Amino acid sequence: KYSDMIVAAIQAEKNRAGSSRQSIQKYIKSHYKVGENADSQIKLSIKRLVTTGVLKQTKGVGASGSFRLA
């Protein structure tokens, strides 16, 4: 599940300011076997996790910027 992968990526990075979408994508692609549409799936999952309150956006708008666990 992409949401689990995103949470794992943010936990692994341990950046106080949060993790960027690009760094999350890079982590997921190197640690998991994902399909061609992974980028758009990650983007959608990040937006969903922010609206449900699992992630907090520290910089930027939408799916860009930095995110950390709430």
Rank of each mutant, 00 (worst) to 15 (best):
V34R: 01
N15I: 04
I46C: 02
S20Q: 04
L49Q: 01
A12L: 03
V61Y: 12
R16I: 12
S20W: 04
N37A: 06
I46Q: 01
L55D: 00
K29G: 03
Q41A: 12
Q11V: 12
K26D: 13
A38D: 04
K14E: 09
D39Y: 10
E36S: 12
T52I: 13
T52D: 11
S30W: 05
E13M: 15
S40V: 13
F67T: 02
S20R: 03
L44P: 01
L69Q: 03
H31R: 05
V61E: 12
G62E: 07
K59F: 08
A38Q: 04
R68I: 14
Y2G: 00
Y27I: 00
K1V: 09
N15T: 06
G53W: 04
T58A: 07
Q11Y: 08
Y32S: 02
D39G: 06
N15D: 07
S20T: 15
I10T: 02
K1F: 09
T52P: 01
S66F: 13
K43R: 12
Q22G: 09
V54F: 08
S40E: 14
A9F: 07
Q11I: 11
L44Y: 08
I46E: 01
K26S: 10
V34L: 08
A38Y: 06
Q22I: 10
Q57I: 12
Q41M: 14
A70W: 07
G62P: 04
S3D: 15
G65R: 12
Q22M: 09
T51H: 11
D39M: 08
Q41L: 14
T58G: 07
A17L: 11
K43W: 15
I42Q: 00
Q22L: 12
I10R: 00
Q25G: 08
K56P: 00
L55K: 02
G53V: 03
K59P: 06
S45T: 15
Q25D: 06
R48Q: 11
S45P: 00
L69C: 06
Q22F: 08
S30K: 10
S30V: 07
Q41C: 15
S20M: 03
I42P: 00
G60I: 07
A12P: 01
N37R: 08
Q41T: 05
Q25E: 13
S19L: 13
Q25W: 09
K14N: 14
K14P: 09
R21E: 15
N37H: 08
G60S: 07
G18H: 05
A17N: 13
H31W: 03
N15F: 05
R48V: 11
E13R: 05
Y27G: 00
A12M: 05
Y2Q: 00
S30Y: 06
I42V: 04
L55H: 01
K59S: 11
L69E: 03
V54K: 05
Y32D: 00
Q41W: 12
L55Y: 01
S45E: 15
L49K: 01
S45A: 15
K43E: 15
V54I: 10
Q11C: 14
A8T: 05
Y2A: 01
G62W: 06
Q25Y: 11
G60L: 06
S64I: 09
S3A: 14
L55P: 00
L55R: 00
S23M: 06
A9G: 00
S64Q: 12
A12T: 04
K29L: 09
L69K: 02
V61R: 15
S23C: 10
V54L: 06
K59R: 10
S66L: 15
K43M: 13
S19D: 02
Q25A: 14
V54E: 03
S40D: 11
L69Y: 06
A9C: 14
I24P: 01
G62I: 05
I46H: 01
K29D: 04
E36G: 10
M5P: 01
Q25C: 15
N37T: 06
I28V: 14
Q11N: 09
K56C: 14
L49C: 04
I24H: 01
D4R: 09
I42G: 00
V61N: 11
K47H: 09
E36Q: 12
S66M: 14
Q41I: 11
V50Q: 03
N15A: 07
G62V: 04
S19W: 04
R21N: 08
E36D: 10
N37G: 07
T52K: 12
K26I: 09
Q41D: 10
L49M: 12
S64N: 12
S64L: 12
I28S: 02
Q57E: 10
A8R: 07
K33P: 10
I42D: 01
A12Y: 06
G65H: 13
S23P: 13
I28L: 04
L69A: 04
A9M: 03
K26G: 06
A12C: 10
V54W: 04
G62H: 07
A17C: 15
Q25T: 15
S20N: 06
Q11F: 08
V61L: 09
V61Q: 11
I6R: 00
R16D: 10
S45R: 04
D4G: 05
R68D: 04
Y2V: 05
H31G: 01
G53M: 03
S30E: 13
E13V: 07
V34H: 02
I6T: 00
N37L: 06
S23W: 14
A12G: 04
L49H: 00
V34Y: 03
D4S: 08
Y2F: 09
K26T: 09
G62F: 06
I6W: 02
S40W: 14
V50F: 02
G53E: 02
K59N: 08
Y32T: 05
K33I: 10
H31M: 06
K43C: 13
S45N: 14
I28E: 15
T51I: 13
Y2M: 08
N37E: 13
Q22H: 09
S30A: 12
G62R: 06
N37S: 06
A17E: 13
S64Y: 09
S30G: 06
N37V: 05
S64P: 09
G60R: 08
G65S: 14
I6P: 00
L49A: 02
G62T: 07
S3G: 09
K29Q: 06
Q57P: 08
L44E: 13
Y27W: 10
